[in-house]
Design a protein around this nucleic acid. Structure first.
Length: 567
RNA sequence: GCGCCCGUAGCUCAACUGGAUAGAGCGCUGCCCUCCGAAGGCAGAGGCUGUGAGUUCAAAUCUCGCCGGGCGCACCA
């Protein structure tokens, strides 16, 4: 649609001004009365051409008026060129949105590895895990929607001294219950008790370290305990993941790299990239101008640490999957670590695929920080339950107006949706202070608004007995009302919005868009009769309604949110 | 001390990457269901975009300096 405009504009600029600009970009004006599309190219070129921007703009606009697609072209303000398309052109373009919202793309090419969630074994998911988990899943969904072959990877924290602590606590205070029958809550209680006791008895820490060493050396009894705990945790994690519509292709955790670190350490030392630091440790140093402190890759006692594992993991991922990209979704506190990791890989001479640490802000409570060790963890599952409770209460308040025949399912959909929407609708880099009412908002710019609008559109379509799969005939319309035009233009943006949200790894771009779409639709709905319209007008309005519904459904699903047909 | 992120309406957040009068939601005021779902819509009040300079035809956006908040800076991950 815009290619013709660009070509024509380019032609004018060459003929009249002997100029060939690199790129001519069209954008949607924020004020709908400024047309369907606008460009600032005249303003940008005015200086180099030493011409009045209005003169350039007028020449371009004059050319635009000669194009058959263009209904109207105006020059406005200091030199904007505003374009109105013929309704038929806009309507034909709607096919693209339809494709973007319905097409099943085939996924091919080297994989994109998306690492997210990263829970610790033996601990329930806390509310703070929702950030990495949901953002990662949304990015996975969006990349898949764009045709990428994504490998969704849950990197489990399933190894380390913390495990020795748990084993010690189980032995001392675990009672007679077999490990495999313990609940996650019981495991957490043991972990918390360990830290309480350790404050009085420092020897416990040593015992924990020694116990972990025994596990590493292959102690059978400990190994069995470890396996049992891993299983308990995974089972319990999956319950929450399912509620969030989150799933992974792989969950290879830290333990998986135990036997893969030695070769990396050897390589680094041999290449002189790893240098001896204090107390027999091994470090990587970076050039002064990089402003990065040294990176510890092996402890003084010879033990490895997370940096060692991440190096081994990088090597493994590259060798095994030959990915085109590796994305790791973590909170901002880990930024330096991943910068050092990347720089170290480069020093080692490794060829890296596209690598990005996708950062999000920190979540905290108004009064205190979250600490699993002290047990003051707010479990994600508890928050989900509370969200569902609130949703159910709201359903209750609507009384007879409720149309669903499965109230618990609806409450689940609305409650989880509300929590998730709160996360994905804001810029991921922002810190979040946890607040029940804010996190679980059910009114205004929130999940139920999307869900309601979808249900409302579906209701209209049902009453019209409209066949949504039939798009054979384009309504022959030559005028659009203001509301129709605005809704149509908004629908046309879907494809580009998903692309932007995906390439910038910003879910809130999509969430914001869906919210705006709902506003447009509801405004349209309130001022234009649909079922009572006649002939081509009715077809047009039903088509717009149908497209709105499918964009909302697909868009919400990309955000891991489900929308009902009735509510 | 050094480095990174953030600062926009009373509150929570947007602003298409430098473009037109900075927009939404919540809260506040007032309207709209004998028309398709009022979980909705319409209208109103509310801003020196933390602050001072600079670059530009054009700055919330880019540069530099301050102020406030968060985070990181070798044996946790």
């Amino acid at each position: 649609m815009h290619q013709k405009l660009t070509d024509a504009a380019r032609q004018v600029l060459e003929e009249e001004f002997h100029s060939s600009p690199g790129e001519i970009s069209w954008r949607r004006p924020q004020d709908p009365t400024h047309g369907d599309s606008t460009t600032v190219v005249a303003l940008q070129l005015a200086k180099t051409l030493k011409k009045n921007p209005l003169e350039i703009a007028e020449k371009i606009a004059a050319k635009m008026r000669t194009l058959s697609d263009v209904e109207k072209a105006e020059v406005a303000g200091p030199g904007y060129v505003n374009i109105w398309f013929h309704p038929q052109v806009l309507l034909k373009e709607l096919a693209r949105t339809r494709t973007a919202a319905t097409a099943k793309v085939s996924r091919k090419g080297p994989p994109v590895i998306m690492e997210y969630s990263q829970p610790n074994i033996a601990k329930p998911l806390g509310i703070h895990h929702i950030l990495s988990t949901v953002v990662g899943q949304v990015l996975t969904n969006m990349h898949r929607h764009q045709g990428d072959n994504v490998l969704a990877w849950n990197y489990l924290g399933d190894w380390g001294t913390q495990f020795g602590k748990l084993a010690v606590a189980y032995k001392k205070w675990g009672g007679t219950k077999p490990a495999s029958s313990l609940s996650l809550d019981e495991l957490l209680a043991l972990y918390v008790r360990f830290h309480e006791e350790a404050e009085k008895n420092e020897a416990l820490e040593d015992e924990a370290r020694a116990t972990f060493r025994k596990l590493e050396q292959g102690d059978q009894e400990l190994r069995a305990f470890w396996s049992a705990v891993v299983e308990i945790t995974k089972k319990s994690l999956n319950v929450v993941y399912e509620r969030l519509h989150v799933s992974f292709d792989l969950d290879l955790g830290e333990s998986f790299y135990e036997d893969k670190m030695e070769t990396v350490l050897e390589e680094g030392k041999k290449k002189g990239v790893f240098k001896e630091g204090e107390k027999g440790s091994w470090i990587v140093e970076f050039p002064e101008e990089s402003n990065m402190p040294p990176y510890l890759v092996q402890k003084g006692d010879g033990a490895t640490l997370y940096s060692t594992r991440d190096l081994a993991q990088m090597r493994y991922r590259i060798d095994t999957y030959h990915p085109q990209a590796i994305y790791i979704v973590t909170d901002i506190a880990q930024k330096l670590h991943f910068e050092q990791l990347e720089a170290t890989c480069k020093q080692l001479g490794w060829e890296l695929p596209t690598f990005e640490n996708i950062l999000f802000g920190r979540m905290r409570f108004a009064d205190q920080k979250m600490s699993t060790r002290k047990g003051n963890i707010l479990k994600l599952e508890e928050v989900l339950d509370e969200a569902v409770r609130r949703a159910d209460k709201m359903i209750e308040e609507h009384g007879d107006a409720i149309q669903t025949d499965d109230r618990p399912a609806l409450a689940e959909m609305i409650g989880t949706g509300a929590l998730v929407y709160g996360i994905v609708s804001q810029n991921r880099k922002m810190d979040i202070v946890f607040d029940w009412d804010r996190m679980l908002s059910l009114d205004g710019n929130s999940a139920p608004y999307l869900q309601y609008t979808h249900a409302r559109a579906k209701s209209v379509l049902r009453k019209a007995e409209f066949n949504e799969d039939d798009d054979s005939e384009t309504p022959s319309i030559d005028t659009l009302t203001e509301k129709e035009r605005l809704l149509l233009n908004t629908l046309l943006q879907f494809e580009g919005v998903v692309k932007d949200a995906c390439s910038e790894h910003m879910p809130h771009i999509l969430a914001q868009y869906l919210f705006e779409l709902c506003q447009c639709y509801n405004a349209f709905y309130n001022s234009e009769p649909i079922l009572k319209a006649e002939g081509e007008k009715r077809l047009l309005r039903l088509r717009l309604t149908s497209q709105t519904a499918s964009v909302l459904r697909v868009g919400a699903e990309l955000l891991t949110i489900r929308v009902p047909d009735r509510m």
